[in-house]
């Protein structure tokens, strides 16, 4: 069971969190309302993933805690957690 250090609450067990997927995926049309992009570009954004065997940046929500989104950098093989940061603040 993972131990995740929530930047808001401190170390908490995995059961308090919910996984939110790959954090490296960003919309192709920018962060706001964005410029129109082709459907293929958008489809690739929607469906394709790097799916690394190793370090993975991912979103989690501290669902049964502060309910804030955080970004976790975790190894998908060893489950070692390299970093946890406030979501959206980038690397």
């Amino acid at each position: 069971m993972l131990l995740i250090s929530c930047p808001y609450c401190g170390e908490r067990p995995e059961e308090e969190f919910a996984f939110g997927g790959d954090a490296s995926v960003v919309p192709p049309n920018g962060a706001g309302e964005g410029a129109p992009v082709g459907t293929e570009t958008f489809a690739d954004y929607l469906y394709l993933r790097d799916n690394p065997k190793g370090r993975h940046r991912e979103h989690w929500i501290h669902r049964y805690g502060c309910q804030r989104w955080i970004e976790v950098e975790r190894d998908t093989v060893t489950h070692e957690i390299h970093a946890v940061r406030v979501a959206g603040e980038g690397k």
């Binding site: 962060a31 929500i61 669902r63 804030r68 989104w69 979501a87 959206g88």
Partner: peptide, 14 residues
């Protein structure tokens, strides 16, 4: 609610 907070906390922090 989680979808909205996610958008506000990750994508549209402005």
């Amino acid at each position: 609610r989680e979808w909205m907070t996610r958008l506000l906390e990750t994508r549209w922090r402005d």
